[in-house]
Design a protein around this nucleic acid. Structure first.
Lengths: 233, 233
DNA sequence: GGCGAATCGGAACCACTGTTCCGGATGTCT
DNA sequence: AGACATCCGGAACAGTGGTTCCGATTCGCC
Protein backbone atom coordinates (compact mmCIF):
# COMPACT_ATOMS: atom_id res chain seq x y z
CA UNK A 1 0.00 0.00 0.00
CA UNK A 2 2.65 2.48 1.07
CA UNK A 3 4.24 4.35 -1.79
CA UNK A 4 7.61 3.65 -0.24
CA UNK A 5 7.22 -0.06 -0.80
CA UNK A 6 10.12 -0.82 -3.12
CA UNK A 7 8.35 -3.79 -4.67
CA UNK A 8 10.36 -6.98 -4.74
CA UNK A 9 13.17 -6.88 -7.29
CA UNK A 10 11.89 -8.06 -10.62
CA UNK A 11 15.09 -9.94 -11.28
CA UNK A 12 16.49 -12.59 -9.01
CA UNK A 13 20.08 -12.59 -8.03
CA UNK A 14 22.14 -14.75 -10.33
CA UNK A 15 22.67 -17.53 -7.81
CA UNK A 16 19.03 -17.43 -6.84
CA UNK A 17 17.94 -17.89 -10.42
CA UNK A 18 20.37 -20.75 -10.93
CA UNK A 19 19.12 -22.43 -7.80
CA UNK A 20 15.56 -22.00 -8.86
CA UNK A 21 16.31 -23.87 -12.06
CA UNK A 22 18.15 -26.57 -10.20
CA UNK A 23 15.25 -26.97 -7.79
CA UNK A 24 12.78 -27.26 -10.61
CA UNK A 25 14.88 -29.89 -12.34
CA UNK A 26 15.37 -31.85 -9.14
CA UNK A 27 11.69 -31.71 -8.33
CA UNK A 28 10.84 -32.88 -11.82
CA UNK A 29 13.08 -35.92 -11.37
CA UNK A 30 11.96 -36.66 -7.86
CA UNK A 31 8.27 -36.41 -8.65
CA UNK A 32 8.71 -38.49 -11.77
CA UNK A 33 10.41 -41.16 -9.72
CA UNK A 34 8.37 -41.24 -6.55
CA UNK A 35 5.28 -39.30 -7.41
CA UNK A 36 3.97 -36.90 -4.82
CA UNK A 37 5.62 -39.06 -2.17
CA UNK A 38 8.97 -37.49 -2.90
CA UNK A 39 10.13 -35.64 0.18
CA UNK A 40 11.27 -32.05 0.28
CA UNK A 41 14.53 -33.19 1.81
CA UNK A 42 15.09 -35.49 -1.12
CA UNK A 43 14.38 -32.76 -3.62
CA UNK A 44 16.68 -30.37 -1.80
CA UNK A 45 19.46 -32.95 -1.74
CA UNK A 46 19.12 -33.62 -5.46
CA UNK A 47 19.26 -29.93 -6.14
CA UNK A 48 22.31 -29.52 -3.92
CA UNK A 49 20.43 -26.98 -1.86
CA UNK A 50 18.87 -26.63 1.57
CA UNK A 51 15.15 -27.03 2.11
CA UNK A 52 14.95 -23.44 3.18
CA UNK A 53 16.05 -22.40 -0.26
CA UNK A 54 13.14 -24.22 -1.81
CA UNK A 55 10.69 -22.55 0.51
CA UNK A 56 12.10 -19.16 -0.40
CA UNK A 57 10.84 -19.66 -3.96
CA UNK A 58 7.83 -21.88 -3.48
CA UNK A 59 5.62 -21.22 -0.50
CA UNK A 60 4.60 -24.82 -0.31
CA UNK A 61 5.25 -28.23 -1.73
CA UNK A 62 1.95 -27.99 -3.49
CA UNK A 63 3.05 -24.82 -5.23
CA UNK A 64 6.22 -26.51 -6.38
CA UNK A 65 4.24 -29.40 -7.81
CA UNK A 66 1.89 -26.99 -9.48
CA UNK A 67 4.77 -25.24 -11.20
CA UNK A 68 5.88 -28.54 -12.62
CA UNK A 69 2.40 -29.54 -13.63
CA UNK A 70 2.41 -26.58 -15.96
CA UNK A 71 5.40 -28.09 -17.74
CA UNK A 72 3.64 -31.39 -17.98
CA UNK A 73 0.57 -29.81 -19.48
CA UNK A 74 2.74 -28.00 -21.96
CA UNK A 75 4.44 -31.23 -22.93
CA UNK A 76 1.12 -32.92 -23.55
CA UNK A 77 0.00 -29.86 -25.47
CA UNK A 78 3.02 -30.25 -27.71
CA UNK A 79 2.07 -33.86 -28.36
CA UNK A 80 -1.39 -32.83 -29.43
CA UNK A 81 0.06 -30.17 -31.68
CA UNK A 82 2.23 -32.75 -33.36
CA UNK A 83 -0.83 -34.92 -33.81
CA UNK A 84 -2.76 -32.00 -35.25
CA UNK A 85 0.05 -31.52 -37.72
CA UNK A 86 -0.24 -35.08 -38.97
CA UNK A 87 -1.80 -35.69 -42.34
CA UNK A 88 -4.25 -38.40 -41.45
CA UNK A 89 -6.44 -37.64 -38.42
CA UNK A 90 -6.65 -41.28 -37.44
CA UNK A 91 -2.91 -41.83 -37.38
CA UNK A 92 -2.45 -38.53 -35.57
CA UNK A 93 -4.77 -39.53 -32.79
CA UNK A 94 -3.17 -42.93 -32.51
CA UNK A 95 0.30 -41.47 -32.40
CA UNK A 96 -0.78 -39.03 -29.73
CA UNK A 97 -2.21 -41.79 -27.58
CA UNK A 98 0.95 -43.84 -27.95
CA UNK A 99 3.14 -40.92 -27.10
CA UNK A 100 1.05 -40.07 -24.08
CA UNK A 101 1.16 -43.65 -22.88
CA UNK A 102 4.92 -43.74 -23.14
CA UNK A 103 5.21 -40.41 -21.39
CA UNK A 104 3.06 -41.52 -18.50
CA UNK A 105 4.84 -44.83 -18.21
CA UNK A 106 8.23 -43.29 -17.68
CA UNK A 107 7.00 -40.55 -15.42
CA UNK A 108 5.49 -41.78 -12.22
CA UNK A 109 4.00 -38.40 -11.66
CA UNK A 110 2.80 -38.17 -15.22
CA UNK A 111 -0.20 -35.95 -15.11
CA UNK A 112 -1.47 -38.44 -12.57
CA UNK A 113 0.14 -38.99 -9.21
CA UNK A 114 1.71 -35.60 -9.49
CA UNK A 115 -0.57 -32.83 -8.63
CA UNK A 116 -2.23 -33.33 -5.37
CA UNK A 117 -1.59 -29.76 -6.19
CA UNK A 118 -4.91 -29.52 -7.92
CA UNK A 119 -7.06 -27.79 -5.37
CA UNK A 120 -10.53 -29.25 -5.26
CA UNK A 121 -12.01 -25.81 -4.92
CA UNK A 122 -10.47 -24.21 -7.97
CA UNK A 123 -11.86 -24.57 -11.45
CA UNK A 124 -9.86 -25.88 -14.35
CA UNK A 125 -6.59 -24.03 -14.85
CA UNK A 126 -6.09 -22.12 -18.09
CA UNK A 127 -3.50 -24.65 -19.21
CA UNK A 128 -5.96 -27.43 -18.59
CA UNK A 129 -8.67 -25.71 -20.56
CA UNK A 130 -6.38 -24.98 -23.47
CA UNK A 131 -5.31 -28.57 -23.52
CA UNK A 132 -8.83 -29.80 -23.53
CA UNK A 133 -9.73 -27.47 -26.34
CA UNK A 134 -6.90 -28.72 -28.50
CA UNK A 135 -7.88 -32.27 -27.78
CA UNK A 136 -11.38 -31.38 -28.86
CA UNK A 137 -9.99 -30.05 -32.10
CA UNK A 138 -8.12 -33.30 -32.67
CA UNK A 139 -11.30 -35.24 -32.09
CA UNK A 140 -13.28 -32.98 -34.37
CA UNK A 141 -10.90 -33.60 -37.24
CA UNK A 142 -11.06 -37.32 -36.63
CA UNK A 143 -14.83 -37.06 -36.76
CA UNK A 144 -14.77 -35.10 -39.97
CA UNK A 145 -12.48 -37.63 -41.54
CA UNK A 146 -14.83 -40.38 -40.46
CA UNK A 147 -12.02 -42.03 -38.53
CA UNK A 148 -13.86 -41.96 -35.22
CA UNK A 149 -17.49 -42.84 -34.56
CA UNK A 150 -19.56 -39.71 -34.11
CA UNK A 151 -21.16 -40.67 -30.81
CA UNK A 152 -17.80 -40.54 -29.08
CA UNK A 153 -17.54 -37.15 -27.42
CA UNK A 154 -14.69 -35.32 -25.79
CA UNK A 155 -15.60 -36.68 -22.38
CA UNK A 156 -15.35 -40.21 -23.68
CA UNK A 157 -11.93 -39.53 -25.09
CA UNK A 158 -10.84 -38.01 -21.79
CA UNK A 159 -12.13 -41.05 -19.92
CA UNK A 160 -10.16 -43.29 -22.24
CA UNK A 161 -7.12 -41.18 -21.42
CA UNK A 162 -7.69 -41.53 -17.70
CA UNK A 163 -7.86 -45.27 -18.10
CA UNK A 164 -4.82 -45.32 -20.35
CA UNK A 165 -2.90 -43.33 -17.78
CA UNK A 166 -3.71 -45.87 -15.13
CA UNK A 167 -2.80 -48.81 -17.32
CA UNK A 168 0.45 -47.19 -18.37
CA UNK A 169 1.37 -46.46 -14.77
CA UNK A 170 0.44 -49.91 -13.59
CA UNK A 171 2.39 -51.76 -16.24
CA UNK A 172 5.30 -49.35 -16.46
CA UNK A 173 7.63 -51.37 -14.29
CA UNK A 174 7.02 -54.82 -15.61
CA UNK A 175 5.65 -54.45 -19.13
CA UNK A 176 6.77 -51.06 -20.39
CA UNK A 177 5.67 -51.75 -23.94
CA UNK A 178 2.22 -52.96 -23.11
CA UNK A 179 0.76 -49.49 -23.26
CA UNK A 180 1.12 -49.58 -27.03
CA UNK A 181 -0.98 -52.68 -27.30
CA UNK A 182 -3.55 -51.19 -25.00
CA UNK A 183 -3.60 -48.07 -27.11
CA UNK A 184 -4.42 -50.14 -30.16
CA UNK A 185 -7.19 -51.81 -28.20
CA UNK A 186 -8.92 -48.64 -27.20
CA UNK A 187 -8.46 -47.16 -30.65
CA UNK A 188 -10.61 -50.01 -31.87
CA UNK A 189 -13.30 -48.84 -29.49
CA UNK A 190 -13.33 -45.59 -31.40
CA UNK A 191 -13.79 -47.19 -34.79
CA UNK A 192 -17.00 -46.29 -36.60
CA UNK A 193 -19.73 -48.83 -37.05
CA UNK A 194 -20.63 -49.75 -33.50
CA UNK A 195 -24.04 -49.10 -32.02
CA UNK A 196 -24.52 -45.69 -30.45
CA UNK A 197 -23.29 -45.40 -26.89
CA UNK A 198 -25.92 -45.45 -24.14
CA UNK A 199 -26.30 -42.79 -21.50
CA UNK A 200 -25.14 -39.23 -21.62
CA UNK A 201 -21.69 -37.95 -22.40
CA UNK A 202 -19.81 -36.08 -19.69
CA UNK A 203 -20.50 -32.38 -19.37
CA UNK A 204 -17.69 -29.86 -19.33
CA UNK A 205 -18.01 -29.53 -15.57
CA UNK A 206 -17.89 -33.25 -15.13
CA UNK A 207 -14.78 -33.45 -17.25
CA UNK A 208 -13.15 -30.81 -15.11
CA UNK A 209 -14.04 -32.64 -11.94
CA UNK A 210 -12.83 -35.90 -13.40
CA UNK A 211 -9.53 -34.41 -14.51
CA UNK A 212 -8.98 -33.07 -11.08
CA UNK A 213 -9.73 -36.42 -9.51
CA UNK A 214 -7.54 -38.20 -12.02
CA UNK A 215 -4.67 -35.92 -11.22
CA UNK A 216 -5.15 -36.38 -7.52
CA UNK A 217 -3.96 -39.93 -7.10
CA UNK A 218 -7.45 -40.94 -5.98
CA UNK A 219 -5.83 -41.49 -2.63
CA UNK A 220 -7.54 -38.65 -0.88
CA UNK A 221 -7.88 -34.97 -1.37
CA UNK A 222 -8.06 -33.28 1.96
CA UNK A 223 -10.48 -30.36 1.65
CA UNK A 224 -7.59 -28.15 2.59
CA UNK A 225 -4.73 -29.10 4.82
CA UNK A 226 -4.87 -26.39 7.48
CA UNK A 227 -1.16 -26.72 8.05
CA UNK A 228 0.26 -23.75 6.27
CA UNK A 229 -2.63 -21.61 7.39
CA UNK A 230 -2.97 -22.73 10.97
CA UNK A 231 -0.77 -21.93 13.96
CA UNK A 232 0.55 -18.42 14.26
CA UNK A 233 -2.02 -17.56 16.91
CA UNK B 1 7.60 -75.15 22.51
CA UNK B 2 6.87 -76.01 26.13
CA UNK B 3 4.22 -78.64 26.56
CA UNK B 4 2.62 -76.46 29.20
CA UNK B 5 1.73 -73.80 26.67
CA UNK B 6 -2.07 -73.70 26.84
CA UNK B 7 -2.38 -72.51 23.23
CA UNK B 8 -4.59 -69.47 22.74
CA UNK B 9 -8.28 -70.26 23.21
CA UNK B 10 -9.83 -71.26 19.96
CA UNK B 11 -12.97 -69.27 20.70
CA UNK B 12 -13.08 -65.59 21.48
CA UNK B 13 -15.01 -64.28 24.39
CA UNK B 14 -18.48 -63.22 23.36
CA UNK B 15 -17.81 -59.49 23.66
CA UNK B 16 -14.53 -59.89 21.83
CA UNK B 17 -16.21 -61.59 18.92
CA UNK B 18 -18.91 -58.94 18.73
CA UNK B 19 -16.30 -56.21 18.76
CA UNK B 20 -14.35 -57.93 16.04
CA UNK B 21 -17.41 -57.84 13.82
CA UNK B 22 -18.09 -54.23 14.65
CA UNK B 23 -14.50 -53.34 13.83
CA UNK B 24 -14.65 -55.10 10.51
CA UNK B 25 -17.87 -53.31 9.60
CA UNK B 26 -16.50 -49.94 10.68
CA UNK B 27 -13.29 -50.49 8.74
CA UNK B 28 -15.27 -51.47 5.67
CA UNK B 29 -17.20 -48.22 5.81
CA UNK B 30 -14.21 -46.07 6.62
CA UNK B 31 -12.06 -47.52 3.87
CA UNK B 32 -14.88 -47.27 1.38
CA UNK B 33 -15.31 -43.62 2.23
CA UNK B 34 -11.76 -42.41 2.57
CA UNK B 35 -9.69 -45.18 1.09
CA UNK B 36 -6.53 -46.14 2.89
CA UNK B 37 -6.40 -42.63 4.29
CA UNK B 38 -8.94 -43.52 6.93
CA UNK B 39 -7.32 -43.23 10.34
CA UNK B 40 -7.32 -45.90 13.00
CA UNK B 41 -8.90 -43.43 15.39
CA UNK B 42 -11.73 -42.89 12.97
CA UNK B 43 -12.32 -46.60 12.55
CA UNK B 44 -12.25 -47.11 16.28
CA UNK B 45 -14.74 -44.33 16.83
CA UNK B 46 -17.10 -45.73 14.21
CA UNK B 47 -16.88 -49.12 15.85
CA UNK B 48 -17.51 -47.60 19.28
CA UNK B 49 -14.28 -49.10 20.48
CA UNK B 50 -10.80 -48.01 21.53
CA UNK B 51 -7.86 -48.25 19.17
CA UNK B 52 -6.24 -50.73 21.48
CA UNK B 53 -9.10 -53.10 20.85
CA UNK B 54 -8.42 -53.03 17.14
CA UNK B 55 -4.78 -53.81 17.68
CA UNK B 56 -5.69 -56.75 19.85
CA UNK B 57 -7.26 -58.42 16.83
CA UNK B 58 -5.24 -57.04 13.96
CA UNK B 59 -1.53 -56.60 14.46
CA UNK B 60 -1.42 -53.75 12.03
CA UNK B 61 -3.55 -51.49 9.90
CA UNK B 62 -2.31 -53.35 6.90
CA UNK B 63 -3.60 -56.61 8.30
CA UNK B 64 -6.99 -55.05 8.89
CA UNK B 65 -7.12 -53.83 5.32
CA UNK B 66 -6.04 -57.19 4.06
CA UNK B 67 -8.86 -58.87 5.93
CA UNK B 68 -11.30 -56.61 4.18
CA UNK B 69 -9.68 -57.05 0.82
CA UNK B 70 -10.61 -60.70 1.05
CA UNK B 71 -14.24 -59.68 1.28
CA UNK B 72 -13.84 -57.47 -1.73
CA UNK B 73 -12.29 -60.21 -3.78
CA UNK B 74 -15.10 -62.50 -2.75
CA UNK B 75 -17.65 -59.93 -3.82
CA UNK B 76 -16.07 -59.58 -7.23
CA UNK B 77 -15.88 -63.35 -7.45
CA UNK B 78 -19.60 -63.50 -6.87
CA UNK B 79 -20.15 -61.04 -9.70
CA UNK B 80 -18.18 -63.22 -12.04
CA UNK B 81 -20.12 -66.25 -10.95
CA UNK B 82 -23.36 -64.47 -11.73
CA UNK B 83 -21.95 -63.59 -15.13
CA UNK B 84 -20.91 -67.18 -15.69
CA UNK B 85 -24.45 -68.21 -14.92
CA UNK B 86 -25.85 -65.95 -17.62
CA UNK B 87 -27.14 -67.50 -20.81
CA UNK B 88 -25.36 -65.37 -23.34
CA UNK B 89 -21.62 -64.92 -22.75
CA UNK B 90 -21.63 -61.46 -24.23
CA UNK B 91 -24.37 -60.15 -21.98
CA UNK B 92 -22.77 -61.85 -19.00
CA UNK B 93 -19.49 -60.13 -19.56
CA UNK B 94 -21.19 -56.82 -20.07
CA UNK B 95 -23.26 -57.20 -16.97
CA UNK B 96 -20.17 -58.08 -14.98
CA UNK B 97 -18.33 -55.01 -16.19
CA UNK B 98 -21.27 -52.82 -15.34
CA UNK B 99 -21.64 -54.32 -11.92
CA UNK B 100 -17.94 -53.94 -11.24
CA UNK B 101 -18.01 -50.34 -12.35
CA UNK B 102 -20.88 -49.56 -10.04
CA UNK B 103 -19.20 -51.35 -7.19
CA UNK B 104 -15.98 -49.44 -7.62
CA UNK B 105 -17.79 -46.17 -7.98
CA UNK B 106 -19.51 -46.41 -4.65
CA UNK B 107 -16.53 -47.79 -2.83
CA UNK B 108 -13.58 -45.49 -2.75
CA UNK B 109 -11.39 -48.34 -1.68
CA UNK B 110 -12.86 -50.71 -4.20
CA UNK B 111 -10.11 -53.14 -5.02
CA UNK B 112 -8.11 -50.05 -5.76
CA UNK B 113 -7.15 -47.50 -3.18
CA UNK B 114 -7.72 -50.07 -0.51
CA UNK B 115 -4.93 -52.47 -0.19
CA UNK B 116 -1.71 -50.74 0.23
CA UNK B 117 -1.93 -53.95 2.10
CA UNK B 118 -0.70 -55.82 -0.90
CA UNK B 119 2.89 -56.41 -0.05
CA UNK B 120 5.16 -55.86 -3.01
CA UNK B 121 7.20 -58.87 -2.08
CA UNK B 122 4.42 -61.43 -1.96
CA UNK B 123 3.04 -63.16 -5.01
CA UNK B 124 -0.59 -63.13 -5.93
CA UNK B 125 -2.84 -64.21 -3.09
CA UNK B 126 -4.94 -67.37 -3.53
CA UNK B 127 -8.07 -65.27 -3.71
CA UNK B 128 -6.53 -63.19 -6.43
CA UNK B 129 -5.53 -66.21 -8.45
CA UNK B 130 -8.92 -67.80 -8.11
CA UNK B 131 -10.53 -64.60 -9.26
CA UNK B 132 -8.30 -64.36 -12.26
CA UNK B 133 -9.02 -67.93 -13.19
CA UNK B 134 -12.75 -67.38 -13.10
CA UNK B 135 -12.35 -64.27 -15.19
CA UNK B 136 -10.37 -66.35 -17.65
CA UNK B 137 -13.24 -68.79 -17.82
CA UNK B 138 -15.65 -65.97 -18.52
CA UNK B 139 -13.44 -64.77 -21.31
CA UNK B 140 -13.06 -68.27 -22.74
CA UNK B 141 -16.79 -68.68 -23.00
CA UNK B 142 -17.10 -65.33 -24.69
CA UNK B 143 -14.44 -66.43 -27.14
CA UNK B 144 -16.19 -69.69 -27.84
CA UNK B 145 -19.42 -67.87 -28.48
CA UNK B 146 -17.64 -65.55 -30.86
CA UNK B 147 -18.71 -62.58 -28.78
CA UNK B 148 -15.19 -61.36 -28.18
CA UNK B 149 -12.37 -61.11 -30.67
CA UNK B 150 -9.89 -63.94 -30.23
CA UNK B 151 -6.77 -61.80 -30.00
CA UNK B 152 -7.97 -60.27 -26.75
CA UNK B 153 -6.32 -62.18 -23.95
CA UNK B 154 -6.85 -62.23 -20.23
CA UNK B 155 -4.22 -59.57 -19.67
CA UNK B 156 -6.05 -57.25 -22.03
CA UNK B 157 -9.27 -57.77 -20.17
CA UNK B 158 -7.51 -57.09 -16.88
CA UNK B 159 -6.01 -53.91 -18.28
CA UNK B 160 -9.46 -52.80 -19.37
CA UNK B 161 -10.61 -53.46 -15.81
CA UNK B 162 -7.82 -51.38 -14.36
CA UNK B 163 -8.78 -48.54 -16.62
CA UNK B 164 -12.45 -48.97 -15.85
CA UNK B 165 -11.66 -48.87 -12.15
CA UNK B 166 -9.91 -45.57 -12.56
CA UNK B 167 -12.66 -44.06 -14.65
CA UNK B 168 -15.31 -45.25 -12.22
CA UNK B 169 -13.42 -43.79 -9.28
CA UNK B 170 -12.73 -40.53 -11.02
CA UNK B 171 -16.30 -39.93 -12.12
CA UNK B 172 -17.99 -41.39 -9.05
CA UNK B 173 -18.65 -38.08 -7.35
CA UNK B 174 -19.84 -36.03 -10.26
CA UNK B 175 -21.13 -38.45 -12.88
CA UNK B 176 -22.02 -41.66 -11.08
CA UNK B 177 -23.75 -43.13 -14.09
CA UNK B 178 -21.02 -42.48 -16.56
CA UNK B 179 -19.30 -45.77 -15.83
CA UNK B 180 -22.10 -47.55 -17.68
CA UNK B 181 -21.46 -45.58 -20.82
CA UNK B 182 -17.76 -46.21 -20.52
CA UNK B 183 -18.45 -49.88 -20.09
CA UNK B 184 -20.35 -49.90 -23.37
CA UNK B 185 -17.44 -48.11 -25.00
CA UNK B 186 -14.84 -50.64 -23.98
CA UNK B 187 -17.15 -53.53 -24.79
CA UNK B 188 -17.05 -52.26 -28.34
CA UNK B 189 -13.29 -52.59 -28.23
CA UNK B 190 -13.81 -56.28 -27.62
CA UNK B 191 -16.09 -56.79 -30.58
CA UNK B 192 -14.82 -59.17 -33.24
CA UNK B 193 -13.76 -57.88 -36.61
CA UNK B 194 -10.94 -55.52 -35.75
CA UNK B 195 -7.37 -56.07 -36.89
CA UNK B 196 -5.22 -58.20 -34.61
CA UNK B 197 -3.67 -56.34 -31.72
CA UNK B 198 0.01 -55.47 -32.01
CA UNK B 199 2.65 -56.42 -29.47
CA UNK B 200 2.50 -59.17 -26.92
CA UNK B 201 -0.18 -59.85 -24.38
CA UNK B 202 0.71 -59.62 -20.70
CA UNK B 203 2.21 -62.68 -19.09
CA UNK B 204 0.80 -64.10 -15.90
CA UNK B 205 3.60 -62.54 -13.90
CA UNK B 206 2.98 -59.19 -15.51
CA UNK B 207 -0.69 -59.41 -14.69
CA UNK B 208 0.16 -60.15 -11.09
CA UNK B 209 2.51 -57.21 -10.91
CA UNK B 210 -0.07 -54.98 -12.55
CA UNK B 211 -2.80 -56.06 -10.20
CA UNK B 212 -0.61 -55.30 -7.28
CA UNK B 213 0.21 -51.89 -8.65
CA UNK B 214 -3.40 -51.20 -9.44
CA UNK B 215 -4.41 -52.07 -5.93
CA UNK B 216 -1.71 -49.95 -4.46
CA UNK B 217 -3.01 -46.55 -5.32
CA UNK B 218 0.13 -45.90 -7.34
CA UNK B 219 0.90 -43.49 -4.57
CA UNK B 220 3.89 -45.37 -3.26
CA UNK B 221 4.57 -48.69 -1.74
CA UNK B 222 7.27 -48.32 0.83
CA UNK B 223 9.44 -51.41 0.66
CA UNK B 224 8.48 -52.06 4.24
CA UNK B 225 7.96 -49.40 6.86
CA UNK B 226 10.31 -50.41 9.67
CA UNK B 227 7.89 -49.05 12.21
CA UNK B 228 6.40 -52.11 13.80
CA UNK B 229 9.76 -53.84 13.73
CA UNK B 230 11.98 -51.05 14.99
CA UNK B 231 12.42 -49.74 18.53
CA UNK B 232 12.23 -52.18 21.40
CA UNK B 233 16.01 -52.03 21.95
C1' DG C 1 37.46 -3.28 -1.32
C1' DG C 2 33.52 -2.67 1.42
C1' DC C 3 28.51 -2.36 2.64
C1' DG C 4 23.76 -3.77 2.81
C1' DA C 5 20.30 -6.64 1.23
C1' DA C 6 19.03 -10.83 -0.64
C1' DT C 7 19.97 -15.51 -0.21
C1' DC C 8 21.48 -19.93 1.69
C1' DG C 9 21.63 -24.06 4.74
C1' DG C 10 19.85 -27.16 7.75
C1' DA C 11 18.64 -27.85 12.53
C1' DA C 12 14.53 -27.25 15.11
C1' DC C 13 9.59 -27.24 15.14
C1' DC C 14 5.14 -29.23 14.96
C1' DA C 15 1.12 -31.64 13.51
C1' DC C 16 -0.25 -36.02 12.27
C1' DT C 17 -1.04 -40.86 12.69
C1' DG C 18 0.18 -45.73 13.44
C1' DT C 19 1.43 -48.36 17.48
C1' DT C 20 2.23 -49.59 22.33
C1' DC C 21 1.11 -49.94 27.22
C1' DC C 22 -1.27 -50.82 31.32
C1' DG C 23 -4.83 -49.96 35.04
C1' DG C 24 -9.43 -51.13 35.29
C1' DA C 25 -13.65 -53.52 33.60
C1' DT C 26 -15.82 -57.83 31.99
C1' DG C 27 -16.71 -62.53 30.73
C1' DT C 28 -16.28 -67.39 31.98
C1' DC C 29 -15.57 -71.39 34.60
C1' DT C 30 -15.78 -73.82 38.94
C1' DA D 1 -20.20 -66.15 44.46
C1' DG D 2 -15.27 -66.04 43.68
C1' DA D 3 -11.13 -66.20 41.08
C1' DC D 4 -8.67 -65.57 37.08
C1' DA D 5 -7.77 -64.86 32.39
C1' DT D 6 -9.11 -62.09 28.81
C1' DC D 7 -10.42 -57.95 27.09
C1' DC D 8 -11.20 -52.85 26.84
C1' DG D 9 -10.15 -47.88 26.50
C1' DG D 10 -7.54 -44.18 25.49
C1' DA D 11 -3.52 -41.61 26.97
C1' DA D 12 1.24 -41.67 25.82
C1' DC D 13 4.88 -42.71 22.51
C1' DA D 14 7.51 -42.40 18.23
C1' DG D 15 8.55 -42.02 13.30
C1' DT D 16 7.68 -38.99 9.49
C1' DG D 17 7.72 -35.15 6.69
C1' DG D 18 6.19 -30.49 5.63
C1' DT D 19 7.34 -25.87 7.30
C1' DT D 20 9.74 -22.21 9.84
C1' DC D 21 13.63 -19.58 11.68
C1' DC D 22 17.82 -17.34 11.94
C1' DG D 23 22.89 -16.94 11.88
C1' DA D 24 26.24 -17.31 8.17
C1' DT D 25 27.21 -16.44 3.42
C1' DT D 26 27.17 -14.45 -1.11
C1' DC D 27 26.02 -11.22 -4.67
C1' DG D 28 25.42 -6.62 -6.68
C1' DC D 29 26.60 -2.08 -6.39
C1' DC D 30 29.21 2.15 -5.04
Amino acid sequence: MSAATPAAPRTLRRDARANRERILAAARDAFAEHGMEAGMDDIARRAGVGVGTIYRRFPTKEALAEAILEDKLAAVGAMIDRALGADDPDGGLRRFLGELARHQAEDRSGAAALASCARPDAGASPGELALRERLGELLRRAHDAGAVRPDVRLGDLMALLWGLGRVAAVTADTAPRYADRYTALIMDALAPGAAALPGRPLTAAQITAGSRAAMTTAAGIRPRPPRAAAARS
